[in-house]
Amino acid sequence: MSRVMKFAPVILKNLFSKPVTRRYPAVPIQYPEGDRGHIEIQIDRCISCGMCVRSCPTGTLSVDRMKGTWTINRFDCVQCGYCVLKCPVKCLSIVPGYQEPEREKASQTYQKSPEVLRAEAEKRAKQAALAKEMAAKKAAALKAKKEAEAAAAAGAAAQAVQSADKN
């Protein structure tokens, strides 16, 4: 009999000790610090460069520069963290807390605040005006250069005619 019942002491011990499973959801989960749960963004720091969109292996992110939005389809995200590595201004972070189950897949969009949008629009307008000014200056400089060359050529031609007359 002792040959067969080798596992009996372990079974008896398990019978009289408390369960190892946590009584979730009554007892909440404690996630360790570096746990990879979901992606968060500080939307007002985002510069809409699109590096995160190009780096996502599943293609779940999208960015609209004009409207100032960043969209993520949380059910397609695999929590790899590559977008967090690639963001040049480090506005993305990966934080603990898994995606809750839902009835259907849905995207979540983050919108930049109106002040930031206004500031960006002003900056764009300023840059456009500066670019226009630079272009105008360049065009004027080019025109002046062409006129000077033409005048120099005319002067050289007149001199040549004069010396031919002399000889």
Binding site: P32, E33, G34, D35, R36, V78, Q79, C80, G81, I94
Partner: peptide, 14 residues
Amino acid sequence: DLMEMTTGGRLIYS
């Protein structure tokens, strides 16, 4: 639990 503490994931570590 040790893997989750060090890498952030239980099965897929990235």
